[in-house]
Simulated scan of single mutants.
Amino acid sequence: MTTIDFRLIRQLWMFLAVAEEQHFGRAAQRLNMSQPPLTEQIQVLEQSLKMSLFERSRRGTKLSPAGAAILPAVRQFAEQVERLERVVREVAAGQSGVLQVGAITSAMLDTVPELQHELRRQYPHLTVFVREIDSVEAIPALEAGELDVAFVRLDGPVGNGIESIPLAEDRLAVAVPRDHPLAELSRVRLRSLADVPLVMSARQVSPAYFDFLTAICRSNGFAPRVLHEVRSVTSQIAYVGCGQGVALVPASMRKLASENVVIRPLKERVMVVTAALAWNANRHNPMVDAVVSWANGVAGKVRTKG
């Protein structure tokens, strides 16, 4: 079993302060310590890593190439430590539990607030941490235990203990610039998008969703001309507003459209899963059970509407 090197953790924290302040004196003030011990600890860190982390001159301190290379990983490490400290404080303060939630942007706008309202009502001492993710990040994070539940675009079985419930579906529509000829139509045929550049949600963000939309286009006789691949529906609408093509989006996203973008329904009835709850059944958590119970109720309402 490897022993945690707390001295290294402290030294990395010091390295981050100096890297961000670009000055040993200011970094020492930020860390509530004097400068000589800070300088000494950075030197010890450099010796243990066998690399120079900073270039020092009369004009100040700047990162060396090696220091710049490790900075992103150290920054990510510091964020994880801060998250751990926050959870520990919440639990120590008497909170009854912590729930780590990941969600795509559209789910953060619609589904997650509804869940939080219900959880606050039933479990007033529960602490819920929400972070934005891409759909493709959900499964690895659930498997690793970094997330308890995820609200993503997911359709069909995943395996490895990951289970899911479709929570919301919506009719597919098209977002077009207000001055585009298609904006004059009350409904748009999919086939009419054959020669129009499209702004699509990136395949690397949500492979199943990208492949579904591509298959829909092909079934209507054309291969989509993808001009841009972006990370979210909100980005799709923003690109459309900048005249960068049109986008296939859920009809409910009309509430996000700016004044220069209109959402027109398709003539074809194509339904898409806009949010699904995913969780790891191999990791037992009573709070996850509560979320799944809530989700089953929401899914039942969706089926009733359908």
Score class of each variant (00 low, 15 high):
275 A>T: 09
265 P>N: 08
244 Q>N: 12
244 Q>A: 14
276 A>F: 05
250 P>W: 06
262 V>Q: 03
260 N>S: 05
275 A>K: 07
262 V>L: 07
255 K>M: 12
276 A>P: 04
263 I>V: 08
255 K>T: 13
269 R>D: 14
238 A>K: 10
262 V>M: 05
270 V>H: 05
248 L>V: 07
264 R>L: 09
277 L>N: 01
249 V>K: 01
257 A>Y: 01
259 E>N: 12
266 L>V: 02
243 G>A: 09
273 V>I: 08
249 V>N: 01
252 S>C: 09
274 T>Y: 03
252 S>R: 10
245 G>W: 01
247 A>W: 05
274 T>D: 04
243 G>I: 07
258 S>M: 13
237 I>P: 00
243 G>Q: 07
263 I>C: 03
276 A>W: 02
271 M>D: 15
271 M>P: 12
250 P>L: 09
255 K>F: 13
263 I>R: 02
256 L>T: 13
270 V>Y: 03
269 R>I: 14
265 P>I: 05
248 L>H: 06
250 P>E: 09
270 V>R: 05
248 L>A: 08
265 P>M: 05
238 A>F: 11
255 K>G: 10
272 V>S: 02
257 A>E: 01
242 C>H: 15
253 M>Y: 10
259 E>F: 13
278 A>L: 04
249 V>P: 03
248 L>C: 08
247 A>M: 05
270 V>L: 08
252 S>A: 12
255 K>A: 13
274 T>S: 09
